[in-house]
């Protein structure tokens, strides 16, 4: 078991976002983690559920807060070959949102599908 690792190991990573941006720093620092993971050629998945969906809501403007609006970075993920972004349909609906409210292309899946997808992961990182 201990010697399984080889240089070419590709694991399924999932970054699970359940918290909205700005109220706490988690969303921003998860995003920094995601960007670094791109350098390791792993199979990276990002899940947005519950209030994590607000991270990718269109129209964020933080000027009056003096905080950095990091939402454009989600659109840049494609350039890092991070393209597996998943949003849970039930969470969108609970919040009165639809896919049109999101600033980046995502795959909208059901809670049941999200549960199955999570079960396929090797490493799940949450904040």
């Amino acid at each position: 078991m201990e010697d399984d690792f080889e240089a070419g190991t590709v694991k399924k990573f999932m970054f699970v976002n359940r918290k909205p941006p700005y109220g706490t720093v988690y969303a921003l620092e998860v995003l920094e983690m995601v960007l670094i993971s791109a350098a390791f050629d792993q199979d990276v998945h990002i899940a947005f559920l519950d209030d994590g969906i607000y991270q990718i809501k269109k129209g964020q403007d933080t000027k009056d807060l003096g905080m950095k609006n990091f939402s454009p970075t989600y659109r840049a993920l494609e350039g890092y070959d991070i393209e597996k972004l998943f949003v849970e349909r039930e969470c969108l609906e609970e919040r009165g949102l639809s896919e049109d409210d999101l600033l980046v292309p995502v795959e909208v899946i059901s809670r049941a599908e999200m549960g199955k997808l999570m079960a396929e992961m090797d490493v799940v990182l949450t904040a």
Binding site: T9, F13, E32, M33, D122, L125, A127
Partner: peptide
């Protein structure tokens, strides 16, 4: 060190666990 050390731990360790 850098965040890469976390991703590397995820790759090299058999199990990764988060406390938050």
């Amino acid at each position: 060190s850098g965040l890469g050390q976390l991703i590397e731990a995820g790759i090299q360790a058999d199990r990764m666990i988060t406390f938050g």
